[in-house]
Simulated assay, not measured.
Amino acid sequence: MSVLTPQAGTQAIYRVNPVAKLGATAIISIALVLSIDWVSAAVALAFESVLFLFAGLSLRRFALRTLPVTIAAFFSAVTILLYGQPSGQSYLQFLLINVSDGSIELAIATLLRVLAIGLPAVVLFVTVDPTDLADGLAQVLHLPSRFVIGALGGLRLVGLFIDDWKSLELARRARGIADRGRLRRFAGQAFALLVLSIRRGSKLATAMEARGFGASNRRSWARESRFGAAEVALLVIGVVVAAVSVTVSVATGNWNFIVGG
């Protein structure tokens, strides 16, 4: 199974239009990127943690899917902690490293903010089928069908590229040219995959043009993309999470508008 293909689920979130999922994620993300403080991010993350329970993901699958975001958040926080702008009491100084009250607070805010923005995006993406997303983008948002179908075709190829990478690795090992020099092997294999992807993409584009996918006239769709009460409810939840996070941050005096300060 492709890593981009979500597992079928009986939870309601699987039946929600992907456009609404993208909209809810965007609303929360926009609210959080306007300020650098730990309160708004912590409040949003608390709400999201409750909502994650309804995503139908096991703890192991949730941890594996969100591992890249967790790693990115950790290293971002460590970088800010060591090299952030110092303020208040300083606890450690060594060359460019300066750990102070200000850098600690900013590191915590960065950690929570990356998690609050990244985790819901990953979780919602797991519950999205690429074809449903393409239907929603074209029928609900009325994006150009040529762009939407082309993007869908490219997204479907990602899983094949993973299989191609494994096949290239096995083929090179069978020929005895993958035993030494990991960096050199990786570079050569990456170039081979690039050439293969360009050829496959060109063939796919030609095939899609031959089948009329690139026509400029108004096209029909096999499945109707609906946007109803469930989608509106998800957007409302996103607005509520964003509004409460900002309100609590402003009320506690922690709001730090990026443009203003």
Rank of each mutant, 00 (worst) to 15 (best):
L4S: 04
Q7D: 13
A8C: 00
T10N: 14
R15G: 15
V19W: 09
I27G: 03
I28N: 02
D37E: 09
D37W: 00
V39P: 01
V43F: 00
L45F: 10
A46P: 02
L51G: 05
F62N: 00
L64S: 10
R65W: 08
A72L: 15
F74K: 04
T79L: 13
T79Y: 14
I80W: 11
L95H: 11
I97F: 14
V99T: 05
D101S: 10
G102W: 03
I104T: 05
I104C: 01
L112M: 07
L112S: 00
G118A: 02
L119C: 02
P120Q: 06
P120H: 05
A121F: 08
L137T: 02
A138E: 13
F147G: 00
V148I: 12
G154F: 08
R156Y: 08
R156K: 14
L157W: 09
D164E: 15
W165G: 06
S167I: 08
L168T: 02
L170Y: 11
L170W: 10
R172L: 07
A187D: 08
A190H: 07
L194R: 05
R200T: 15
S202Q: 14
L204Y: 05
L204G: 10
A210H: 04
G212N: 12
G212I: 07
G212R: 11
A215G: 13
N217F: 11
S225I: 05
V232W: 15
L235K: 04
L235P: 07
V236D: 08
G238K: 09
G238F: 07
V239K: 02
V239H: 02
S245M: 07
V248F: 09
V250P: 03
T252D: 03
G253M: 03
W255V: 01
G261I: 12
